[in-house]
């Protein structure tokens, strides 16, 4: 009986403590800057080096480039850029290898959709995903 009473004492003590729960859907969840959420893509920065495609462990990134319209300039421009969020695990490796930081993480993590097809995000969508962008991307 003594042990039971002691335990009850602990419970009573905790009644006066501050609440620790989040009011999540009503208030946004406080997240640290480093948090890895859905990527933001800057098409103008991309040099079509394909490093993100090569490093992706789940092969969820697909991109195509086109020749620079100005024939005097070398290099390529990005044409299409898709990330399949059905299989993306937000591991951060694509942003880690990107030499121009044209793909960065944001703090947005809500990805629920009514159809799987909607999880296929293209260049425009990723470009417009420009809220809560991570400030520091490289150490």
């Amino acid at each position: 009986m003594l042990g039971l009473m002691k335990g009850l004492g602990y419970t009573m003590k905790n009644l006066t403590r501050k609440k620790v729960t989040y009011d999540y859907p009503n208030k946004p969840l406080p997240l640290p800057d480093r948090f890895r959420g859905i990527q933001k893509f800057y098409p103008e920065k991309c040099i079509v080096c394909n490093q993100c495609v090569n490093i992706c462990p789940t092969d969820c990134i697909q991109l195509t480039g086109k020749k620079h319209p100005d024939p005097t300039k070398r290099g390529k421009l990005i044409d299409t850029y898709d990330i399949n969020f059905e299989i993306c695990i937000l591991c951060d490796l694509c942003t880690e290898v990107c030499p121009t930081e044209s793909i960065v993480m944001t703090n947005n993590f809500e990805l629920a959709e009514y159809s799987r097809d909607e999880l296929f995000k293209n260049l425009e969508w990723l470009d417009e995903n420009d809220e809560n962008i991570r400030k520091v991307n490289k150490v």
Binding site: E44, K45, I47, C49, K73, G75, P99, T100
Partner: peptide, 10 residues
């Protein structure tokens, strides 16, 4: 400037 950046990165 961007062009420069890309070149440098390459």
């Amino acid at each position: 400037g961007l062009e420069q950046l890309k070149k440098e990165a390459a």
